[in-house]
Design a protein around this nucleic acid. Structure first.
Length: 493
RNA sequence: GGCAUCGUGGCCGAGUGGCUAGGCACAGCUCUGCAAAAGCUUGUACAGCGGUUCGAAUCCGCUCGAUGCCUCCA
């Protein structure tokens, strides 16, 4: 089961701006770090899209037989509401507003986060470390950066010296920025800051007396800067250089740029071989963001209680909708788009459900092996899930043709087809068939089968009044009957 | 203002220098007692203007427009 040996995987690397053949540092093993959420409010759907993209990537790696250590952190300290010198920690601010302990805020939204991800059928990461659990590691990194000459202490805070760093290394290589341009375009008034340069960023912030979240350090009580936690945790669990670092596009600058700078200033080598950035989910053409209020919560979609949508949608439909777009493309969510995805998703599920009833023959009219490789080719091309889904629908069409006796399949091909569909639909894309997961539906199935039998008898007796009554009343309850060559099947909407 | 990404048919969304993904919607046909489902067959595309090329929606330039980042955000 080491399929990766037969597949050449290409990944778009944000650092080089090109698709590159993926070669892990240690054959068969992958270290992947993804920036997780700051748990100061409920995860919105935009957040979920990023994590879902990396969940799909994680799943595909695993499917290929790689041993993956997937680290996704929880930011529970250090994330300031802005970059001003009196910037407040997001968690602390929320705690003050809600009159809670900061860790109560953290706990509440961490639980919410896990809850939502579970509904979306996410695989848990290998390690989910927290910033507050790694204060010591962060302090150690700061000490090293200071002794390497790339940071300075001012009044209990420590700042990264971007200018000095840029003299020996390159600041801005990930986001395509030049330090000179950034200096020229600075809006801030440097005079009000204790930083030497506006581009410098905080590694450690001094805690004012009223500040609750504080830890002792060589520079006095304070708390770590936001960018530092990821460097500390990725280095600790994945090493000074690891394979993949992912995150949302909006973190490219400054967050990821700062991570590179910190790691290089501390350890020397460039920390990451492949930088992956997932693109934004938009609502009404605008980025979803908690700060602007232009956002939708996953639960609002599952219940249908929101102003954007006409009805509720299941987590798998939302997941399918997202998988229909490439992870590097901006995706706009709308009611129509979800409605279309729901129909397509149901069609896919029905085809898969009908697989084991599929009759077999001596020959196949469908080249299953070629199709299977095309599925891999799609995923090998920078995880192109939309192409994969197009291929899945090719299989759906073939399945339906065979059902209609307009095509044939051998037992061997049928086995391959079934396996491949299950692998890609459930394991890689992470979709779930609500019928197989909902166990109370077994009884309903029996009842409906009985009604189908009664309707069949009525039809044979040309008693169409009765047969239509059964069909129409079931339809009103959301159960759709479908007459095929092999008899009548049904679908619960 | 700077950096970056993008602009594909009614909608959502892939993609390649020439052979036009896929889903949804629409129309016709087949099947059906009638429907639905399924199958088959069509249509309306690659923002605009130039250039490179035998040939470009795909490469280059410009214009217009959108979005993201440049202060927090997945």
């Amino acid at each position: 089961m080491q399929a990766f040996k037969n597949q050449t995987l290409k990944i778009y690397n944000s650092l080089s701006g090109k698709k590159e053949v993926f070669k892990p540092i240690n054959e068969g093993h992958i270290g992947m770090y993804v920036c997780g959420p700051t748990v100061y409010s409920n995860v919105h759907l935009g957040n979920c899209r990023t994590f879902m993209s990396f969940d799909m990537i994680f799943r595909y790696f695993k499917h290929l037989g790689f041993k993956v250590r997937y680290v996704r952190n929880i930011t529970d300290a250090g994330h300031l509401v802005d970059d001003a010198d009196d910037g407040e920690d997001k968690i602390a601010k929320k705690a003050r507003l809600e009159q809670l302990e900061p860790m109560e805020v953290v706990q509440r939204y961490t639980v919410d986060f896990h809850n939502i991800l579970e509904k979306f059928n996410f695989l848990p990461p290998s390690i989910e470390p927290t910033a507050t659990g790694h204060i010591i590691e962060q302090i150690e990194i700061i000490k090293t950066i200071i002794s390497n000459g790339y940071a300075y202490e001012v009044n209990g805070s420590v700042y990264f010296d971007v200018t000095t760093f840029n003299e020996k290394k390159e600041y801005g290589k990930l986001s395509g920025r030049k330090l000179e341009d950034m200096i020229a375009n600075t809006r801030e008034l440097a005079a009000q800051s204790e930083k030497r340069n506006p581009q410098d960023f905080a590694l450690w912030k001094k805690a004012e007396p009223e500040h609750i979240m504080r830890w002792p350090s060589p520079w006095g009580d304070g708390f770590p800067g936001w960018h530092l936690e990821c460097t500390a945790m990725s280095t600790k669990y994945l090493g000074e250089t690891f394979d993949i670092h992912g995150g949302g596009m909006d973190l490219k600058f400054p967050h990821h740029e700062c991570e590179i700078a910190q790691a290089e200033a501390c350890n020397g080598p460039s920390p990451v071989n492949y930088w992956l950035h997932a693109n934004m989910l938009t609502l009404n053409g605008k980025k979803m963001a908690k700060s602007t209020g232009n956002s939708i919560l996953p639960n609002e979609i599952f219940t249908g209680e929101n102003t954007f949508l006409s009805k509720a949608f299941s987590p798998s439909v939302v997941r399918f909708f997202m998988m229909q777009a490439h992870y590097t493309s901006i995706l706009d969510i709308s009611n129509d788009a979800l409605l279309a995805s729901e129909k397509g998703f149901n069609k896919l599920m029905e085809a898969i459900e009908s697989l084991n009833k599929l009759p077999v023959q001596d020959n196949s009219t469908f080249n299953v092996e070629q199709w299977q490789q095309q599925c891999y080719d799609a995923m090998n091309d920078d995880f192109n899930s939309p192409i994969l889904i197009a291929k899945l629908f090719e299989a759906v069409k073939q399945i339906n043709l065979i059902k209609e006796e307009k095509g044939t399949i051998t037992q061997e091909d049928k086995t391959t087809l079934t396996e491949t569909l299950n692998n890609f639909v459930f394991d890689v894309l992470g979709l779930e068939d609500k019928k197989t997961t909902d166990n109370s539906s077994n009884k309903i199935d029996g009842v409906v089968e009985l009604l189908i039998e009664l309707r069949k008898e009525a039809r044979e007796n040309k008693d169409f009044a009765t047969s239509d009554k059964i069909r129409n009343q079931l339809a009103e309850m959301g159960i759709e009957l479908k007459d095929g060559k092999e008899g009548t099947t049904f679908n619960i909407l």
